[in-house]
Design a protein around this nucleic acid. Structure first.
Length: 800
RNA sequence: GCGCGUAUAGCUCAGUUGGUUAGAGCGUUACAUUGACAUUGUAAAGGUCUCUGGUUCGAGUCCAGAUACGCGCACCA
């Protein structure tokens, strides 16, 4: 055994051995029939667009620890891997490459050819990220690997869609949606990101009123002027009253509308509405049954209604429109520093323009007949009772058995669900599950497969990537085959571990889909980890150039050190700052563990499994008692998902107790019993560490020559407790060591210089003579009878 | 606007149900070193647990308020 642990030299081979063993597949685990309880995690599938980053690394570290612990504690442990096709993200990436390399956009290429390209790209990207996941030590069952866009998942998607369609939960409607002109697709409310910005805010004369707006370019068609019914300032005007006034492109007739949605405090308390391009305005228009007119086309250019401005891009037109209104004497005032939020598309960065379009939606407020799962019923719900999707989502978390960690995210979850609107699921992109609906003239058909007969044309739109992701926990376990063995054994899954940033996108959608389709929860516990940040607290992003690359860290310090740095000192829901220093300190630890083992192996004659031990000396008893406590604490922390605490306790024991005290003493006190204890504890310590640091522990464990560490049984606490008298003695001994050191330092007595100490009244620890001499570098200790424990050093007495 | 979080050593953070003298890692300083390990060891320095008030025999921990920073959500035109 070399005197340093070199992760680079062993990690690859160890992973290969694990793969070869087949133990990542739960069916191959030893004593399968005894593994009554299953433990399942669905891996949050990484997108096939990029490479492994620290966000993935923290997820893999935590989940691998969970699964390895479950596997070692006798559960039928399944960690099911996969990747996500990430519809919009992948499509835009592929199109970018296409434009760069061939100077063509996707339309130039055509749907079929573009999809071929996208698939090739996704496959490539998939292979990269899968290899990178392996470097982290990820113990997923690769034989069950899934992809959100493969045939099996496509069948699941079509089946789910049809079921929802038949229940009336999916409908097609002309509604206001978020249009991304850059990505040329609609996006859901959750995919809109708001950026704080400053825009000039204009006040214009609109007949007798002054209206405020940040978007003059939308105002061409505004023929309704809205105010609050209780606003005394405008009491003279009546709802429905018509007014003739001069506007951008000439005289128009405006209609007064009174609506309570108006904030009297804001601006002048009067506004004109543009129902086609504003959600609020749309809703006002719906309430009063007003006309709606499109002003801006899907490319962000003004339509014919804009008159002389028609065909201009809104950004270019805006200042010119303001100029024209000014020249007509209609510009009253400009507030230059108006703070507003600009809605952008999460993926493309395009500025979102509300538009009215015919799209597919999931109705979250429509009642349907709830079907209870027989296998894992949700408490408090009856088979056949009426419920809405929103109610199911609320119920599942409130009382149906989903626990969210940390607790405070319950509020976040409910806040989101309570305000949920219908979910726009159709996208105008190509890379995704095509909507299983066909049209022929006025006829419409929704089915799992295309309808028979000629002339049917399938809907061109594809589904939001989160639709297929919502099915993930069960589409990966054989559904829609309801009789799938996997589904019976592994669903509901045990834990869903992911970042808190996708609680809405994914966690909530999985709850929606699973409770609706299966009538059971998708998982029992949600563990939300925080974001990994740079040392200065900034986000790790490619654009800022500040990224700690997990692969680089693995190369430099080893996968174990990288994993440990992400597990220790991090608590659920809280962001963590990561530095290279932190990772290197854990590299030091893995080396320490390596050298502890080396010492143990060099001390004993024969490396073997020690089933039971007895203690001879005070040190033996102490270390066994400490170890006993450690095992129960570590087990408890694993059960409660307290990884930071767990890691610190393990490190404290390993380094400060086992190495610094017991091993030091063992150098003096070597004997058969000591050796057995060394082996006994080391072997179990490797097991305890394994879920956190699988590589170094597996490598060391080879010396025991008893199979793979990854399937060894989780240890039980050895029965060992110190009596009060023994605890006192041990403390006495420690205080002797401490006292001598202190006095030596105080009196400047060099370590090599022999001093004499006399110990009074400490006769009951005389058997520690050799240990004390070694630890204190003394040749002689005199034991003297005395009343109270005292120590005499260089002719001065100190109490102990 | 509504909601949430964080504030503990120079830095990064733990601190489970309130209970002796508040911990760790990194960093700093001193000393040690042919030894399992310099990726080491022994020690030291370093804290008004943000502030104010309350509950309690007892508060870093519970409650109320304040301050600072951060985050999420929202239909202020």
């Amino acid at each position: 055994m070399p005197n340093r642990y070199s992760p680079q030299e062993v990690e690859y081979d160890i992973y290969a051995k694990w793969m070869e063993s087949g133990y990542f597949t739960p069916e191959n685990l030893p004593d399968l029939e005894d593994r009554k309880e299953s433990f399942t995690i669905s891996l949050p599938p990484p997108n096939v667009t990029g490479t492994l980053h620290m966000g993935h690394a923290v997820m893999l570290a935590i989940e691998d620890a969970m699964v390895r612990y479950a596997r070692m504690s006798g559960k039928r442990a399944l960690w099911l891997p996969g990747t996500d096709h990430a519809a919009i993200a992948t499509e835009s990436k592929v199109e970018k490459i296409l434009i760069k390399e061939e100077g063509k956009n996707r339309h130039d290429l055509g749907r079929e050819k573009f999809l071929e390209k996208a698939k090739a790209f996704a496959q490539d990207s998939h292979d990269t990220i899968v290899n990178q996941m392996k470097k982290m030590g990820t113990s997923v069952d690769w034989t069950r690997e899934a992809y959100t866009f493969d045939d099996a998942r496509n069948l699941a998607v079509r089946t789910a869609f049809k079921k929802m369609y038949d229940d009336g939960l999916i409908y097609r409607g002309e509604r206001i949606i978020n249009w991304d002109p850059k990505g040329q697709t609609t996006i859901s409310d959750d995919e809109v990101e708001y950026i704080d910005g400053k825009t000039p805010f204009y006040y214009f004369q609109y007949g007798p009123f002054v209206i405020g707006t940040a978007r003059p370019e939308t105002k061409f068609g505004d023929k309704y002027v809205v105010m609050h019914p209780d606003d005394k300032r405008y009491a003279q005007y009546e709802h429905g009253q018509k007014l003739d006034l001069e506007w951008i492109n000439g005289p128009i007739t405006a209609t007064v509308i009174k609506d309570e949605a108006i904030d009297m405090e804001f601006g002048t308390g009067v506004m004109t509405i543009t129902p086609w391009h504003s959600v609020v305005d749309f809703e006002i228009a719906e309430r009063h049954n007003l006309d709606k007119e499109q002003i801006i086309d899907l490319n962000g250019k003004l339509l014919a209604v804009a008159g002389e401005f028609a065909g201009m891009h809104i950004m270019k037109a805006r200042p010119e429109i303001v100029e024209k209104l000014k020249s007509k004497g209609l510009l009253v005032n400009v507030d230059e520093a108006y703070g507003n939020r600009i809605a952008t598309a999460q993926r493309s960065g395009g500025i979102v323009e509300p538009q009215i379009l015919k799209q597919w939606f999931i109705d979250v407020n429509k009642e349907f007949e709830y079907r209870q799962s027989k296998r894992a019923p949700i408490k408090g719900l009856d088979d056949g009772q009426k419920a809405t999707l929103k109610q199911l989502m609320q119920h599942a978390v409130r009382q149906g058995g989903i626990e969210i960690l940390p607790d405070r995210f319950n509020k976040t979850y409910f806040n989101w669900v309570d305000n949920l609107r219908d979910w726009n699921i159709s996208r105008q992109i190509w890379f995704g599950h095509q909507i299983p609906v066909w049209y022929k003239g006025e006829e419409i058909y929704c089915g799992i497969d295309a309808p028979a007969g000629e002339g049917w044309v399938q809907d061109e739109d594809t589904l939001d990537t989160w639709f297929s992701a919502g099915l993930w926990t069960f589409s990966t376990l054989g559904w829609p085959n309801e009789n799938s063995e996997d589904l019976k054994i592994y669903h509901p899954t045990s834990v869903l571990e992911t970042g808190y940033d996708i609680i809405f996108f994914w966690v909530a959608r999985m709850i929606l889909m699973s409770t609706y389709i299966l009538g059971e929860v998708p998982f029992k516990t949600v563990y939300l980890h925080g974001m990994v940040r740079n040392e200065d607290g900034s986000k790790m992003s490619k654009s800022s150039g500040k990224v700690i690359d997990p692969l680089e860290m693995i190369e430099k310090f080893g996968a174990d050190a990288t994993r440990l740095s992400l597990l220790v000192g991090a608590t659920p829901g809280n962001d963590m700052k990561l530095s290279e220093d932190k990772i290197s300190s854990f590299r030091n630890f893995t080396n320490k563990l390596w050298n502890i083992s080396r010492f143990v192996f060099m001390s004993v004659k024969e490396v073997k499994n020690v089933k039971e031990v007895r203690s001879e000396t005070l040190d033996d008893k102490w270390i066994l008692a400490e170890f006993s406590t450690l095992v129960s604490e570590v087990t408890d922390h694993f059960e409660k998902y307290q990884y930071s605490m767990l890691g610190e306790k393990l490190r404290e024991f390993t380094w400060n107790k086992f190495a610094d005290v017991y091993l030091e003493n063992a150098k003096v006190q070597s004997g058969q019993t000591t050796n057995e204890i060394l082996l006994f504890i080391l072997e179990r310590l490797l097991i305890l560490w394994h879920p956190f640091a699988p590589f170094v522990t597996e490598e060391i464990y080879k010396k025991f020559d008893s199979g793979m560490l990854m399937i060894q049984n989780w240890p039980k606490s050895p029965e060992c407790k110190m009596t009060e008298a023994e605890t006192r003695q041990f403390a006495l001994k420690q205080s002797i060591i401490e006292r001598v050191r202190l006095v030596r330092a105080e009196k400047n007595l060099p370590w090599r210089e022999q001093i004499n100490i006399n110990l009074y009244g400490a006769g009951d620890i005389q058997d520690q003579d050799a240990v004390l001499k070694q630890r204190l570098k003394l040749d002689e200790i005199s034991w003297v009878a005395g009343e109270k424990p005292q120590i005499e050093i260089a002719e001065e007495k100190y109490d102990l």
